[in-house]
């Protein structure tokens, strides 16, 4: 993945958030406070603006800028968490391109940052439930020598499954946890936006 592709990825996420804003907000209104779509859209719109005219030295710079902007513009739970994900990922990627293995290691650092900050583990019904399987799939593909396009496609599929699999879970973190057993039966908005992020990556990297 080169700098241009990275930019394209982030811009495509912004487009995806625009498109899925209402869906994400609707999911958040079932088990949260009906702002996840708006939050993500506001954040990535700001990211697109921040990247405009920005001259990154490496792939990581784009992602760090993305994360920093998300932290500054989103608020809520998703702002610091996604902000940290992109920042921590970006900090690992110093070169002008990143191959599948580099990306896999960087994403793992991103997830570690999210989990350090939010303390959510797999099964808590959060974005982690999409991110963790996505990164596992990405890493496995990379270790098997697949290119980043293939790895991203597998990650996207795993994230989507992970997001769907949050439906039967009872939330243990974030606003949804206040519902207790009433959170069961609804898909987590953060896991859903995470799946969108990886689906977008797969599309951008598709040869």
């Amino acid at each position: 993945m080169d700098i241009h592709q990275t930019r394209t990825w982030v811009r495509s996420i912004a487009a995806a958030m625009d498109q899925h804003k209402d869906h994400l907000t609707q999911l958040d209104s079932a088990i949260g406070d009906a702002d996840h779509g708006v939050n993500m859209q506001r954040g990535f719109t700001a990211v697109v603006a921040a990247l405009d005219g920005y001259e990154p030295a490496g792939v990581g710079d784009v992602l760090v800028k993305t994360g920093t902007t998300l932290i500054s513009k989103v608020g809520g739970a998703a702002g610091p968490l996604y902000g940290t994900f992109f920042r921590a990922t970006g900090k690992q990627l110093t070169g002008p391109v990143a191959d599948a293995e580099q990306l896999a290691a960087a994403f793992d650092a991103g997830l570690a940052g999210v989990q350090k900050l939010g303390a959510a583990v797999l099964g808590d019904k959060t974005m982690v439930d999409a991110l963790a399987p996505a990164l596992e799939a990405f890493g496995a593909a990379a270790r098997a020598g697949e290119d980043e396009a293939t790895a991203a496609e597998k990650a996207a599929a795993a994230a989507e499954t992970g997001a769907k699999d949050t439906i039967p879970l009872q939330a243990r973190k974030g606003r949804a946890s206040y519902l207790g057993s009433r959170s069961i039966g609804h898909q987590d908005p953060g896991a859903t936006s995470a799946a969108l992020i990886f689906r977008t990556l797969a599309e951008v990297l598709k040869p």
Partner: peptide, 11 residues
Amino acid sequence: PGEVFTSPVPD
């Protein structure tokens, strides 16, 4: 003050 029903940002 954050956005409506959204916590403010660190800045």
